[in-house]
Design a protein around this nucleic acid. Structure first.
Length: 847
DNA sequence: ACATCCCGCCAGACA
DNA sequence: TGTCTGGCGGGATGT
């Protein structure tokens, strides 16, 4: 495809367009295309429509900077950079990229779109090539190209009108694209590297923009810098822990007092305050305690202190300490900015506000805050409301409990390292620069360690019910979405869980993904949860504490020492249980009492298990003996792992809670690991879900001995169940029969729980579990219903107790992955070639 | 007019 | 010296 140039490079300097126009057209068009497809795991070379705009590379100097050379530049900015040489005086953002691919599709696209004549541009635009979604409506009604030809002139104007606005290029959207590239909750063992260059290229933006994003993400430990131009993606595993630490720090900083002061003073400008003799904000308190500013000295410190990261952390602190969880921009700016120096400098203030917008955009993309307006005497003013995790009390308690087991102490009050990262663990300073010297052993290693799945800190954060509540988010079903309201605490969460169905979000199931839902007794559940929490107080516990913890679990379950060891050795089979562990910890702390009272509604426990067929002996043993297993052999409704079908995934649901209250959200079929979309993100991308009421699953051809099913199918109307089970399966999650391919994943592992995310709480916005059938993807339903009966292993057959299985569709193998991605892509671009989609899905079904 | 924030210059940091 | 990094603010765009 590449190199088959179709466009003549004429009009490269078309006077009809201003530089800004050209650049923006190129950027926006490119951004759109790149983003939408990158969201779906596509690279630019996958874009089918690029063929008509690729150009013969030989016609263009590969080193030619796209914008600067091809477009007239603003003298004020280029400062005489009219030649290539001078242009190269400034950092060349792309030269360090692989020379083997100097002309990435994106680059080609960018330049060519910019350079293309208006005619061609218009033609392409008419074809909807550059309007992924925002112009969907137009696309749907603009298939007649002849009309466009006749209306070319008009179209030109129309194009001008349709030209993507700056919102499409906003940092927030870019951040969303960025976030869509990585799973919110990556697998424990997963080490996702982020190449800034690649990301920038894929997203079609300057690397500078990526810096803005990663800086903020870094401040929340969602990423960490591992090397030059390289970051490591951690996901949200640490988010709550980080937030908790920030909250603690913010309290120390007395930010709340300062905000109150400012509000009290009606946010009078610093100059006014001085004139009126009003006290200055306690900058000193802020600054001297600020993050790592103390740790360093000199200009470097000063510079870093102004960094986006620190500002981001401070900004977040303001929310976390605020009772209203609302922070207006001006107050934030006043507090966060070193007003003692800049107060009188309006331009400085303005600059800082710009930065706050940058930060806010990223935080908004993270769905931690949302933009609002507050009305005051002086009128409406912009503000942001915290919609992220709020209550860390329980998480703290849970963390303490977990820490006692894991011997992991969280350093919340430790001054931040020179790099503005919050120190969440004594061993885990995600620092840079200065930290390199602090950790001479190997900063990179340290970072790797910190990002490693077994990193001690991860579990802890998992205890934050709000944050890492991968499996259960009852409130999400009916409650408010993204907004765990301030009042929404763990307590409320727990209580509500009794009334609302647990929610399970399975983002992208890997090849051998199969889910099994097993019934269990309430009592079991509590015990299981307890054991599970004991055994897996953290993801890392699996690796570090298996010995100690596993012993208890194993002992309780009567497993041999060998099994314990094998479990220890092959803990990876359960790496996906991270979230479960974390949740169990919380549950352990929260529900032990209630469990005894029999009032606990136990959320589903999610285990992942490699297909037995794909396991070696050790693995199989490990699986069987894995202490994580919340099963108690021989108990009614309880199923030991060995009793389970050789599935890569299975869900364990206490029969008391029942399947009646379980929601599955299967995300679109994007490439596992490469992409994982949260439900909310799927929703934002207009991806479709399928909501299957319990009744719809009545014919599900799975053995459901433990449930009152019919004909061996699952009847999700469990005894005592109140709410129907909802299965939401995104378009891509096209089930497939359990073929050998499906059952033999490379590692025999599946990511699901690792991907389970608390974003479920935001789901209600996207899907309506209450409704029998949501935005449907009929095929998914169809396939689901056609899901072949899960083969029973001999152990299953001989299982003394009835069990309830729900085998979810497994994603297709690699061969089908692209197809799934395409499906997902089309799911987003509904106007796309739906015929092909149907065909593909049809094939899947038929297969 | 004000709110937003894109864009890229340019300088410090670093290899 | 070249590149990475990111502070910074002009100025364009949106409301």
């Amino acid at each position: 495809m590449e190199g088959t140039g179709c466009l003549a490079l004429k009009d490269l300097t078309s006077p009809r367009k201003t530089r800004t126009d050209l650049v923006e057209e190129a950027d926006s068009n490119n951004d759109q295309k790149a983003s939408w497809f990158s969201l779906l795991g596509f690279t630019n070379r996958h874009l089918p429509f690029q063929e008509n705009i690729f150009v013969d590379c030989t016609k263009v100097n590969p080193k030619t900077p796209l914008k600067n050379d091809l477009m007239p530049t603003a003298p004020s900015k280029q400062k005489g950079c009219s030649t290539l040489e001078t242009i190269h005086n400034t950092p060349i953002k792309h030269v360090d990229r692989p020379q083997a691919d100097p002309w990435t599709p994106t680059a080609n696209l960018k330049m060519l779109i910019s350079a293309a004549s208006p005619d061609i541009r218009n033609r392409d635009m008419k074809k909807g090539l550059f309007r992924p979604i925002e112009n969907e409506e137009r696309e749907e009604t603009s298939s007649d190209t002849t009309q466009f030809d006749a209306m070319e002139d008009c179209a030109t104007d129309e194009f001008e009108k349709q030209r993507p606005n700056r919102k499409l290029k906003s940092l927030g959207l870019l951040c969303q694209k960025f976030l869509a590239l990585y799973p919110d909750y990556p697998l424990s063992m997963e080490k996702t590297r982020i190449s800034l260059d690649e990301v920038a290229t894929n997203l079609g933006v300057e690397r500078r923009r990526i810096y803005d994003i990663v800086n903020v993400l870094e401040s929340l430990l969602l990423v960490s810098r591992v090397a030059k131009n390289q970051y490591c993606w951690h996901g949200r595993h640490k988010l709550c822990q980080t937030l908790e630490g920030l909250q603690s720090m913010g309290q120390q900083q007395r930010y709340e007092e300062q905000m109150a002061q400012l509000r009290e003073k009606d946010c009078k400008p610093p100059e006014l305050r001085r004139k009126e003799g009003l006290p200055e904000p306690q900058e000193g308190q802020i600054d001297h305690m600020d993050t790592e500013s103390d740790m360093t000295s000199g200009s470097a410190s000063k510079r870093k202190d102004k960094s986006l990261r620190i500002m981001s952390q401070k900004f977040v602190m303001l929310f976390l300490v605020s009772k209203t969880k609302i922070v207006s921009l001006d107050i934030a700016a006043k507090i966060l900015i070193d007003e003692s120096q800049d107060a009188a400098d309006h331009s400085k203030f303005k600059t800082k506000v710009r930065r706050l917008y940058d930060i806010a955009n990223v935080l908004t993309s993270l769905e931690l805050i949302k933009k609002i307006h507050v009305t005051e005497e002086r009128g409406r003013k912009p503000a942001f409301k915290w919609i992220g995790p709020v209550d860390f009390k329980h998480s703290s308690e849970a963390s303490q409990a977990a820490a006692a087991v894991e011997h992991v102490s969280v350093v919340l009050k430790e001054p931040l390292a020179p790099r503005p990262q919050l120190v969440v663990s004594g061993k885990q300073r995600l620092t840079r620069h200065a930290s390199f010297s602090m950790l001479p052993a190997s900063a990179a290693d340290q970072r790797r360690i910190s990002s490693a799945p077994s990193s001690p800190q991860r579990h802890r954060k998992g205890n934050d019910g709000h944050c890492v509540l991968p499996t259960f988010y009852p409130n999400a079903v009916k409650g408010g979405p993204s907004a765990p309201s301030e009042s929404q605490t763990e307590d409320s969460h727990s209580s509500s869980s009794q009334k609302q169905p647990p929610l399970v979000y399975l983002q992208s199931l890997p090849h051998p993904s199969v889910l099994m839902v097993c019934g269990s007794s309430l009592a079991d559940r509590g015990g299981a949860a307890q054991r599970s929490s004991e055994a897996h107080s953290s993801p890392t516990a699996v690796s570090r504490e298996t010995s100690a913890l596993g012993k208890r679990s194993v002992a309780k379950s009567g497993l041999s020492k060998e099994e314990e060891q094998t479990a220890k050795r092959d803990r990876t089979a359960f790496r996906d249980i991270v979230s479960l562990h974390e949740n169990c910890i919380r549950e352990k702390n929260e529900q032990e009492t209630s469990f005894q009272n029999g009032s606990v509604v136990s959320p589903a426990l999610i285990l992942t298990q490699p297909p037995k067929g794909s396991l070696n002996k050790d693995q199989a043993n490990q699986t069987r003996g894995c202490p994580e297993t919340p099963f108690r052999e021989g108990e009614p409704g309880r199923h030991s792992p060995e009793q389970l079908a050789p599935l890569s995934h299975y869900l364990y649901v206490p029969s008391s809670a029942g399947l009646s209250g379980l929601d599955f959200f299967l995300a679109a079929g994007h490439s596992p690991g490469s992409l994982s979309l949260s439900p909310s993100r799927l929703a934002s991308l207009a991806l479709q879900y399928v909501v299957l009421p319990s009744s719809a699953l009545s014919s599900f051809p799975l053995i459901a001995p433990g449930l009152s099913g019919t004909n061996g199918s699952v009847n999700f109307r469990m005894p005592g169940g109140v709410n129907p089970t909802h299965f939401l399966i995104a378009p891509g999650a096209v089930p497939c029969p359990r073929t050998p391919e499906c059952s033999s994943s490379p590692n025999g592992l599946a990511p699901s729980p690792g991907h389970l995310s608390p974003e479920q709480e935001r789901l209600p916005k996207a899907v309506k579990p209450e409704s029998p059938v949501g935005v449907g993807h009929p095929l998914t339903v169809l396939t689901l219903q056609q899901q072949p009966q899960t083969p029973l292993t001999p152990k299953e057959v001989r299982a003394p107790h009835s069990k309830t299985f729900f085998q979810t569709p497994c994603t297709l193998g690699s061969a089908a992955s692209s197809s799934l991605r395409k499906q997902g892509m089309r799911a987003q671009n509904r106007t796309g070639s739906s015929a092909q989609r149907r065909l593909e899905i049809s094939n899947n079904v038929s297969n």
